[in-house]
Design a protein around this nucleic acid. Structure first.
Lengths: 338, 338
DNA sequence: AATAAGAATGCAAATGTTTTCATTTTCGCT
DNA sequence: AGCGAAAATGAAAACATTTGCATTCTTATT
């Protein structure tokens, strides 16, 4: 039985109690300057007494904003995007928006489905990670004419405003760094790249530098591992236990680099003596680890903050479609792993 | 200029194009079995052609569900909750719900504000972390009669259904483990506990075991550090560089334990020879680290999955308010840090 | 004290759906 | 063919707000 007595007060009840019309209550919330101080007080008291909570859904129906922003990420599972998500969330929260979040697990078809889902909720803006998306996702966003941005990678000619670092640059920076220190026997551990433009660009950057320096990387020194400590640790162990092993390792990101360092340590190698390892990202933990991980810093917090505030700004000022991309510079951080 | 021509089709346009009434279109979405196959096809074609996306906000206004669930966490920033969030998100996604997420930074007043915010969006359910919340938050939830659960800690007498482990138990398990191995000189590094029931219970658990074993812990061996690698590393270094140093360390969670291990390594100590370290949580990375961190496992994925699916179930079947708490057992994982 | 301007408020329409109830269509039988 | 039942559809009300327009109340000015 237990009748679900959801007696949530609505605006008319508040109005009745305050002895005003519903319009006035609405105005008291949305345009407080239009209502006399004393009545505003009365409304506030009624709101308090009834425990009224305004209904954003009903607002949103009015062509008003839903005050939500959709954020679609590959995963929230590890350190990769956590700083980014946190700073993005903080930035939009400051403007009164709430995040609708969805994770697709590096599957771009699922990403499309989640995009649809978030659009059903009439998010006021949308943020995706990276530049690789299926055509359907792009056209969906375009047709709905919802302000959308892309975070984490920056490349010329991107179809949506992009806030991120040039990942080609990141990859080549890592490679150049090792080469500058005299390394020529270089191995690579990267995740699958077909649906991951960030990793792909990094890999391309690293390979292009190697090529231009006349360094070729044998196939058995090019391993694939997902962004997962256990798997990357295993990959590194495999690579470093081979009869011929590279003297340096470029990793697709810092999760892989962390795994690789552990793998190397367990294989009884010393860093950087026996093998040098560099990562990309400068994730939480990379600085504190012993040995600290040499890495190419992507300024996640700054990227998230700017992406969030620029998106909000575009929404609030109705300057849609003219969000300017921003390229963040990467920086090589040398630590003791290399 | 650039007239923002948001020509988003609505249900009546779809109806017009399909040559049916709006009701039929609505039914085609919500009760497909009630509409003839051929007209359903026609509707689908119209939907496709117009790029129509249904408006959940308008649905929600109908007393129908908003199909969103609010998740309020202290932080998404590091590894603490990432597994939990991911598994919770996956679980509710499977049932067609989307997550509205908010992070309050371990500030329970902000948590209250975010709770309000999410209720404005008419979330169908709400999940909070831990049992410490200000009174206003509890009454708010009660008054709105929104199904709400609590994740991560389980303690008798909790005011909301709780899905989590008994953190007192976790703390005492860690202490008992060290004591069983003959340790009596034990130090503690915990975060501030006033607004953090999980950490508080763990600390109480550890202290109670020590007390019952006749072990007293001097004040200078009890340090406070937030869940932050850098700070906890520093704390551990301070502690272990003192003229008298403990031979074992219990850490408030694995983030602190990881920092402590790094601190110990940098202080030139060997583990577990010079100092044994145990954490709580078994976060990602604790197993892979070298040395691996001995820790009390809290089954984050299982907790998140069950919490998500139980909450959805309650919402979908309208069995609100009768969600059953579930206590997950903890398990000591011995690795090489102790 | 009368008036005009401006401030404050209320009325009613509009928003995009879902759902109940009524009506129409279809279909199987005789 | 015609009937009744069942299936399919439509009309209209309802949901909780916002807002344009109209009305009423204040206040300052003469």
């Amino acid at each position: 039985m237990s009748e679900n007595q959801r007696d949530r007060a609505d605006i008319t009840e508040v109005a009745r109690l305050a002895g005003v019309s519903a319009s006035t209550v609405s105005r008291a919330f949305n345009h407080p300057d239009l209502v006399k101080l004393t009545t505003r007080r009365r409304v506030e008291r009624a709101v308090e007494e009834l425990g009224y909570i305004r209904n954003r859904a009903a607002q949103a129906m009015h062509g008003k904003r839903s005050a939500t922003i959709g954020l679609i990420v590959p995963t929230v599972n590890n350190a990769i995007f956590s700083e980014l998500i946190q700073s993005f969330t903080d930035a939009v929260d400051r403007e009164g928006f709430t995040i609708l979040i969805a994770a697709h697990g590096f599957d771009l078809r699922r990403e499309y489905a989640m995009t649809r889902k978030l659009l059903e909720h009439r998010v006021d803006g949308l943020a995706l990670i990276g530049l690789d998306h299926i055509e359907a996702t792009y056209t969906l966003i375009q047709r709905q004419s919802v302000p959308a941005i892309t975070i984490w990678n920056h490349a010329p000619g991107s179809r949506l405003p992009a806030f991120g670092a040039d990942n080609f640059d990141a990859g080549s920076t890592a490679a150049q760094y090792l080469i500058d220190r005299g390394h020529r026997e270089i191995g690579l551990i990267f995740p699958p790249t077909p649906e991951n433009d960030r990793a792909r660009r990094r890999l391309e950057g690293a390979l292009s530098i190697c090529a231009s320096e006349g360094i070729s990387i044998p196939d058995q020194w090019r391993l694939e591992a997902p962004y997962d400590l256990e798997r990357s640790k295993q990959a590194a162990r495999d690579l470093l236990n081979g009869e011929t092993r590279p003297r340096a390792l470029i990793c697709g990101n810092d999760v892989i680099a962390q795994g690789a360092v552990y793998g190397a340590l367990e294989a009884g190698l010393t860093l950087p003596g026996n093998v040098a390892i560099v990562g990309i990202g400068d994730f939480p933990g990379s600085a504190e680890m012993v040995p600290g991980i040499s890495t190419v810093r992507l300024p996640a917090r700054r990227i998230g903050r700017m992406a969030g505030s620029k998106l909000c700004e575009a929404i609030l000022t109705n300057r849609l479609g003219q969000i300017e991309s921003h390229r963040f510079v990467v920086e090589m951080i040398a630590r003791s792993s290399s």
